[in-house]
Design a protein around this nucleic acid. Sequence first.
DNA 1: CCCTGGCACTCGCCGGTCCTGAGTGCCAAG
DNA 2: CTTGGCACTCAGGACCGGCGAGTGCCAGGG
Lengths: 336, 336
Amino acid sequence: MLDDRKLAVLRAIVEDFVSTNEPVGSKSLVDRHNLDVSPATIRNDMAVLEEQGFIVQPHTSAGRVPTDQGYRLFVDRLSGIKPLSTAERRAIETFLAGAYDLDDVVLRTVRLLAQLTRQVAVVQYPSLTRSAVRHIELVPLADRRLLLVLITDTGRVEQRTVEVPGKIGDDAISHLRAVLNAFLDGRKLADVASVVAELPAKVTQSERPNAAAVLSVIVETLVERNEERVIVGGASNLTPADFSRGLQEVLEALEEQVVLMRLLGDSGDHASVTVRIGSENGQRLRGTSLVSSGYGAGERALARLGVLGPTRMDYPTAMGAVGAVARYVGQILAES
Amino acid sequence: MLDDRKLAVLRAIVEDFVSTNEPVGSKSLVDRHNLDVSPATIRNDMAVLEEQGFIVQPHTSAGRVPTDQGYRLFVDRLSGIKPLSTAERRAIETFLAGAYDLDDVVLRTVRLLAQLTRQVAVVQYPSLTRSAVRHIELVPLADRRLLLVLITDTGRVEQRTVEVPGKIGDDAISHLRAVLNAFLDGRKLADVASVVAELPAKVTQSERPNAAAVLSVIVETLVERNEERVIVGGASNLTPADFSRGLQEVLEALEEQVVLMRLLGDSGDHASVTVRIGSENGQRLRGTSLVSSGYGAGERALARLGVLGPTRMDYPTAMGAVGAVARYVGQILAES
DNA sequence: CCCTGGCACTCGCCGGTCCTGAGTGCCAAG
DNA sequence: CTTGGCACTCAGGACCGGCGAGTGCCAGGG
């Protein structure tokens, strides 16, 4: 149904449209690519491709433009991943190597991706639920208020204030800290909720309420609310020309953590590079595509990162960049 | 030189232009405001105002538009601060009251401001240099790497990894933590650099290098690099119509911390509401105005917050919102 | 059966022209 | 100093026509 030449035509259309942002016609196609057939033949092929829903013409007597379905086929079967130049690789390496903590890694990563791809970059912090507790710290703020600082093995540092039911002195805090650390150290955060029942056995009668208060804060605000942070960068790479309904809509979506989380979540949790195109991203972000990849050592990814751009995007390059950056970030995190 | 009526005319022009975004002519002015004179008179006044540089006409035979200088006069002498409705006040109060730590306060504040003014909101974290150390925590990461967590009296929690020169065990860490806390507790971060010389007397010979390493990280990365964070929200409120040279430029500026810091820094550090208009913000952000205010208990502000929008902005309302939010945020921080 | 050249057709874009109307500056009179 | 009158300017919208890129269809040829 779709022979090799038709696929080649589709590929050529995508490539040309991506680089020129103008509907591409049969004549210019034969000129630019060395398809050894006449424009008329191409026109016939185009008619078929259009009938199948891979391309459309914005108006009669205009060239063709790929549909989401066309891009999908292009990404899945027609294009490879374009490897980065060695200069780019080196740039990634040196840029990320200088990072001195997790926040910094994430920040640098988002900038790097934005600059590398000239698109909007999106980076998720390592998932809390897939991390383990490295240390818990309690700092007194007032008679009955503590600051809880939770440090995970992935380097995340999260803070919350805790209201404890009873007044609590310095010694009691130290003891509570020791007990909680012994209890939680090395434990996956995902498991905390289910083991909370084991706690009473480990603490004295009097400190039970306070310990419970701290644990419940951990469970409620950190685990259940599934505190996954996403940061965004390179919004200035959005060009109005690419979004018929204006940047507004996209900017709005980018400011809503929920939308971003869903977007990244829906890309699955495998470590490989994944592409979601146009309407696959939901009503709101139908004009955009997301190229993302899991990152983090091990088989199951810690979180995702990627770039968001118009569907008219240079997929091979974006995929190359996202893949490479994800690998390096995983490496950096494994080292620290 | 500028009698009362001319000022009234300027005020009317600003108000009309802000609400319609169209050059305002003499006729529509007399209609909408009850100036008891004829259009011809207004025209004469306008000619004077134009000569003085307060208004311009985009082209001959068009109405007048305020210049930056015109807005300046308007803000300084012609408009008051519009107080918020009681509903809005209550909304602020309830929205901010739910916050449970500093990050959350800042996040809520930026969203609140953006929503209240329909502009881009900008909130600085409380200045580190003006904060005092509440607690220091050291967590072992590896043989010679520690995670340093610094908690200030304003609720900021900052983290950095520290490479120490010598291997360091758990006991040594505990001791070092105690010594450092005793040494730094309650001290202003701004003073840390100058008292660093006093440290050697307080620690044993052997832990001197490690203590010095930790202190130097505090000084270098936290104080000298003047780690003032700014967060931005409501970028989707930017409307392309207001920026002739496109949103791009503004979005870029908003992504560069440096630019934002300078912008807020240049607004001084008094607690009152300040307005910077158009070209006063430098080449890059000449199309925009910033309405900002210091916040934080006490005479000298802890940091600033504000809104950024097109020069064609509803100043009285923006000033009202910024002022009120700054007051509430100060209150919230004082309580915690 | 597929490719090809030819041909008539479509229609968005570009540039020019004209017109309208809002707004102005100037002036002379009150 | 204010006012009505008046001539003038000019941006923007409507209209028009030609150009050209691109198409679909068809008949002929490998």
